[in-house]
């Protein structure tokens, strides 16, 4: 059942991408979707399907998107400033951040969001600990940088995906 849903979603995505409804195009899309389902269908466990039907999650997702775009723009100006400044005010290092999230999907999304925000790249995730490369380590106190790096998104992502 879930494979059929997956297949139809992929086919619609293909049609939106190629923007034509000729028979040859639909056949190609069906073949490509079928191969994708055969290879990757097993990763779709279906245990999260119930969460798709809770409207509150979509509200938090929209809010998260706005915060994320704002932080992303700030990240770009921040890095551009550090690059263009004659003395390059950087203080790089790798710090350890503990996450309060449970599901793997939420952790992956949080790691990706951290990579896109001011001067941080996630290096590795071990259990519940995320190692983050930070271009300007502002403080050596774990409580402070934990909040600075992950705190912005953690509450939103926890409400969306956990």
């Amino acid at each position: 059942m879930k494979n059929i849903v997956f297949f139809i979603t992929l086919l619609i995505f293909w049609l939106a991408l190629t923007f034509s409804v000729s028979a040859a195009n639909i056949l190609t899309g069906a073949a490509a979707s079928l191969i994708t389902v055969l290879f990757f269908g097993k990763y779709l466990t279906g245990e999260n399907t119930g969460k798709l039907l809770q409207p509150a999650r979509y509200f938090w997702f929209l809010l998260f998107l706005l915060v994320f775009i704002w932080e992303c723009l700030r990240a770009n100006f921040d890095v551009a400033y550090r690059v263009l400044h004659p003395r390059m005010p950087i203080k790089p290092g790798i710090v350890k951040v503990e996450l309060g999230l449970k599901s793997d999907l939420a952790k992956a999304i949080l790691a990706n969001s951290i990579t896109m925000t001011p001067g941080t790249i996630s290096v590795d995730l071990v259990g519940n600990v995320l190692y983050v490369h930070w271009i300007y380590v502002g403080s050596f106190d774990p409580a402070v940088y934990q909040n600075k790096v992950a705190g912005r998104f953690e509450k939103y992502i926890g409400r969306i995906f956990d």
């Binding site: 551009a80 690059v83 390059m88 950087i90 790089p92 896109m116 001067g119 790249i121 490369h133």
Partner: peptide
């Protein structure tokens, strides 16, 4: 700006910062 960062920043980790964000 990203390309300038790729040349100016000191090590591979900082260069990736500018390469991904900008």
């Amino acid at each position: 700006f990203g390309c300038i960062g790729l040349i100016r920043l000191p090590d591979v980790y900082n260069r990736l910062q500018s390469a991904t964000k900008c």
